[in-house]
Computed example of a mutant assay.
Amino acid sequence: MSAVTTPPTTDHHRTEPAPRRDAGQTKAAILRAARYLLARHAQADITLRTVAERAGVSPPLILKYFGNKDALFARVMSFEEDADALLDAPVDGLGRHMVRHLLTGQTERGADPVLRIVFAPFQGDQGDIMRANFRTQVSDRLTARLTGPDPGLRAELAVGTLLGLGVMYGIARGTHLREATIDDIVDRYAPTVQALLTP
Protein backbone atom coordinates (compact mmCIF):
# COMPACT_ATOMS: atom_id res chain seq x y z
CA MET A 1 0.00 0.00 0.00
CA SER A 2 1.58 3.29 -1.09
CA ALA A 3 1.56 6.41 1.01
CA VAL A 4 -0.74 9.15 -0.14
CA THR A 5 1.09 12.35 -0.75
CA THR A 6 -0.50 15.72 -1.00
CA PRO A 7 0.83 18.14 -3.54
CA PRO A 8 2.70 21.09 -2.09
CA THR A 9 0.66 24.22 -1.75
CA THR A 10 1.76 27.36 -3.46
CA ASP A 11 1.55 30.54 -1.42
CA HIS A 12 2.67 32.95 -4.07
CA HIS A 13 -0.89 34.27 -4.53
CA ARG A 14 -1.53 34.78 -0.81
CA THR A 15 -0.59 38.06 0.82
CA GLU A 16 -0.15 38.83 4.48
CA PRO A 17 -3.10 40.72 5.91
CA ALA A 18 -2.43 44.39 6.58
CA PRO A 19 -1.81 45.10 10.25
CA ARG A 20 -4.97 46.17 12.01
CA ARG A 21 -5.05 49.82 12.96
CA ASP A 22 -5.38 50.44 16.69
CA ALA A 23 -8.54 52.47 17.25
CA GLY A 24 -7.14 54.33 20.25
CA GLN A 25 -4.01 55.37 18.39
CA THR A 26 -6.04 56.41 15.36
CA LYS A 27 -8.39 58.58 17.44
CA ALA A 28 -5.41 60.15 19.21
CA ALA A 29 -3.75 60.93 15.87
CA ILE A 30 -6.93 62.56 14.59
CA LEU A 31 -7.31 64.67 17.74
CA ARG A 32 -3.63 65.72 17.58
CA ALA A 33 -4.05 66.75 13.96
CA ALA A 34 -7.21 68.72 14.72
CA ARG A 35 -5.54 70.45 17.67
CA TYR A 36 -2.51 71.33 15.56
CA LEU A 37 -4.67 72.85 12.84
CA LEU A 38 -6.93 74.65 15.31
CA ALA A 39 -3.86 76.37 16.74
CA ARG A 40 -3.10 77.80 13.30
CA HIS A 41 -6.46 78.31 11.56
CA ALA A 42 -10.03 79.24 12.36
CA GLN A 43 -12.23 76.18 12.72
CA ALA A 44 -14.40 77.34 9.81
CA ASP A 45 -11.35 77.16 7.51
CA ILE A 46 -10.37 73.60 8.50
CA THR A 47 -11.77 70.74 6.42
CA LEU A 48 -12.05 67.10 7.41
CA ARG A 49 -9.79 66.29 4.47
CA THR A 50 -7.08 68.55 5.90
CA VAL A 51 -7.38 66.88 9.31
CA ALA A 52 -7.32 63.45 7.68
CA GLU A 53 -4.19 64.24 5.65
CA ARG A 54 -2.35 65.48 8.72
CA ALA A 55 -3.43 62.44 10.76
CA GLY A 56 -2.60 59.99 7.96
CA VAL A 57 -6.13 58.59 7.77
CA SER A 58 -9.08 58.82 5.40
CA PRO A 59 -11.92 61.34 5.95
CA PRO A 60 -14.48 58.51 6.33
CA LEU A 61 -12.47 57.19 9.27
CA ILE A 62 -12.89 60.53 11.04
CA LEU A 63 -16.62 60.30 10.46
CA LYS A 64 -16.62 56.74 11.81
CA TYR A 65 -14.95 57.74 15.07
CA PHE A 66 -16.33 61.24 15.64
CA GLY A 67 -19.53 61.49 13.58
CA ASN A 68 -18.93 64.87 11.95
CA LYS A 69 -16.66 67.90 11.98
CA ASP A 70 -18.61 69.68 14.72
CA ALA A 71 -18.39 66.65 17.01
CA LEU A 72 -14.65 66.34 16.36
CA PHE A 73 -13.98 69.97 17.22
CA ALA A 74 -16.26 69.80 20.25
CA ARG A 75 -13.83 67.17 21.55
CA VAL A 76 -10.84 69.34 20.64
CA MET A 77 -12.34 72.34 22.43
CA SER A 78 -13.03 70.31 25.55
CA PHE A 79 -10.38 70.13 28.26
CA GLU A 80 -12.18 67.47 30.33
CA GLU A 81 -9.92 64.49 29.62
CA ASP A 82 -6.77 66.62 29.72
CA ALA A 83 -7.78 68.08 33.06
CA ASP A 84 -8.32 64.58 34.47
CA ALA A 85 -4.67 63.75 33.78
CA LEU A 86 -3.28 67.21 34.60
CA LEU A 87 -4.89 67.31 38.04
CA ASP A 88 -4.31 63.64 38.91
CA ALA A 89 -2.12 64.06 41.98
CA PRO A 90 -2.54 65.05 45.64
CA VAL A 91 -2.50 68.81 46.13
CA ASP A 92 0.76 68.73 48.09
CA GLY A 93 2.56 67.31 45.04
CA LEU A 94 0.38 68.76 42.32
CA GLY A 95 2.83 71.48 41.22
CA ARG A 96 5.48 68.91 40.27
CA HIS A 97 2.91 66.69 38.62
CA MET A 98 1.44 69.52 36.53
CA VAL A 99 4.81 70.79 35.32
CA ARG A 100 6.04 67.29 34.44
CA HIS A 101 2.76 66.39 32.74
CA LEU A 102 2.89 69.51 30.58
CA LEU A 103 6.50 68.92 29.51
CA THR A 104 6.17 65.20 28.84
CA GLY A 105 2.98 65.88 26.91
CA GLN A 106 4.89 68.16 24.57
CA THR A 107 8.00 66.00 24.26
CA GLU A 108 6.54 62.49 24.25
CA ARG A 109 2.93 62.78 23.12
CA GLY A 110 3.14 65.85 20.93
CA ALA A 111 0.17 67.36 22.76
CA ASP A 112 -0.05 69.99 25.46
CA PRO A 113 -2.93 69.53 27.93
CA VAL A 114 -3.83 73.23 28.18
CA LEU A 115 -1.87 75.31 25.68
CA ARG A 116 -4.55 75.41 22.98
CA ILE A 117 -6.48 77.95 25.07
CA VAL A 118 -3.86 80.46 23.90
CA PHE A 119 -5.38 80.27 20.42
CA ALA A 120 -8.98 80.96 21.48
CA PRO A 121 -8.86 84.55 20.10
CA PHE A 122 -8.46 83.13 16.58
CA GLN A 123 -11.66 81.10 16.84
CA GLY A 124 -14.38 83.76 16.89
CA ASP A 125 -17.51 82.48 18.64
CA GLN A 126 -15.86 79.07 19.04
CA GLY A 127 -13.20 80.80 21.12
CA ASP A 128 -15.87 81.73 23.67
CA ILE A 129 -16.73 78.03 23.94
CA MET A 130 -13.07 77.19 24.49
CA ARG A 131 -12.77 79.83 27.21
CA ALA A 132 -15.91 78.62 28.99
CA ASN A 133 -14.70 75.02 28.82
CA PHE A 134 -11.28 76.01 30.11
CA ARG A 135 -12.73 77.89 33.06
CA THR A 136 -15.11 75.13 34.15
CA GLN A 137 -12.97 72.10 33.28
CA VAL A 138 -9.53 73.34 34.37
CA SER A 139 -9.54 76.50 36.53
CA ASP A 140 -12.76 75.80 38.44
CA ARG A 141 -11.84 72.16 39.05
CA LEU A 142 -8.49 73.20 40.43
CA THR A 143 -10.15 75.89 42.56
CA ALA A 144 -12.45 73.30 44.10
CA ARG A 145 -9.44 71.29 45.29
CA LEU A 146 -7.67 74.16 47.03
CA THR A 147 -8.08 75.20 50.65
CA GLY A 148 -7.21 78.48 52.29
CA PRO A 149 -7.81 82.07 51.17
CA ASP A 150 -8.51 83.13 47.58
CA PRO A 151 -8.57 79.64 46.03
CA GLY A 152 -9.93 80.92 42.71
CA LEU A 153 -7.22 83.54 42.32
CA ARG A 154 -4.50 81.08 43.32
CA ALA A 155 -5.82 78.45 40.90
CA GLU A 156 -5.86 80.91 38.00
CA LEU A 157 -2.37 82.17 38.85
CA ALA A 158 -1.07 78.57 39.00
CA VAL A 159 -2.63 77.72 35.64
CA GLY A 160 -1.31 80.99 34.17
CA THR A 161 2.16 80.14 35.42
CA LEU A 162 1.89 76.73 33.79
CA LEU A 163 0.69 78.27 30.52
CA GLY A 164 3.71 80.59 30.53
CA LEU A 165 6.00 77.58 30.69
CA GLY A 166 4.03 75.88 27.92
CA VAL A 167 4.33 78.92 25.66
CA MET A 168 8.05 79.33 26.28
CA TYR A 169 8.76 75.63 25.84
CA GLY A 170 6.37 74.70 23.04
CA ILE A 171 5.77 77.89 21.03
CA ALA A 172 8.71 80.22 21.62
CA ARG A 173 10.95 77.12 21.93
CA GLY A 174 13.40 78.78 24.29
CA THR A 175 16.86 77.46 23.47
CA HIS A 176 18.12 77.09 27.04
CA LEU A 177 14.81 75.75 28.27
CA ARG A 178 14.74 73.02 25.60
CA GLU A 179 18.36 72.10 26.30
CA ALA A 180 17.56 71.47 29.96
CA THR A 181 16.30 68.11 31.15
CA ILE A 182 12.69 67.73 32.19
CA ASP A 183 13.83 66.82 35.70
CA ASP A 184 15.85 70.05 35.94
CA ILE A 185 12.93 72.17 34.75
CA VAL A 186 10.56 70.43 37.17
CA ASP A 187 12.97 70.98 40.08
CA ARG A 188 13.30 74.69 39.27
CA TYR A 189 9.75 75.54 38.15
CA ALA A 190 7.42 73.32 40.16
CA PRO A 191 8.03 75.13 43.49
CA THR A 192 6.67 78.32 41.90
CA VAL A 193 3.48 76.55 40.86
CA GLN A 194 3.21 74.69 44.17
CA ALA A 195 3.55 77.91 46.18
CA LEU A 196 0.28 79.05 44.64
CA LEU A 197 -1.48 75.77 45.38
CA THR A 198 -0.40 75.47 49.01
CA PRO A 199 -2.17 77.89 51.38
Rank of each mutant, 00 (worst) to 15 (best):
G56M: 07
M98W: 03
K64Y: 14
Y65V: 00
A74S: 15
P60R: 06
N68Q: 12
V57F: 05
V76F: 09
R54A: 09
A71R: 15
G93P: 01
L87I: 06
V57E: 04
S58E: 14
L61P: 00
Y65A: 10
D70I: 02
L86P: 01
E53C: 00
R75C: 12
I62T: 02
R109Q: 14
A89P: 04
P90M: 07
K64I: 12
A74M: 05
A85N: 07
E53P: 00
G95H: 08
E81R: 15
P59C: 05
L87Y: 06
D88V: 03
G110L: 08
A111G: 01
S58A: 14
R109H: 14
R75N: 13
G67V: 13
A74Q: 12
L103P: 00
G56I: 11
P59G: 05
D112A: 13
E108I: 00
V57M: 04
R100P: 04
I62W: 01
G105N: 04
L72H: 14
L94N: 08
K64T: 13
G95W: 05
A85C: 04
L61R: 12
E108W: 00
G67L: 12
M98R: 03
D70E: 15
G95L: 08
L86R: 01
A83P: 02
M98K: 03
G105Y: 00
L61H: 03
V76T: 13
H97A: 09
V99T: 10
V76L: 08
A85F: 05
I62K: 01
D112F: 02
L102H: 00
L72W: 13
A83N: 09
A111M: 04
V57I: 10
A55P: 10
G110P: 09
Q106F: 06
A52D: 01
V57Y: 05
M77L: 06
K69D: 04
T107D: 13
T107L: 15
E80V: 11
D88R: 06
E53N: 11
T104L: 15
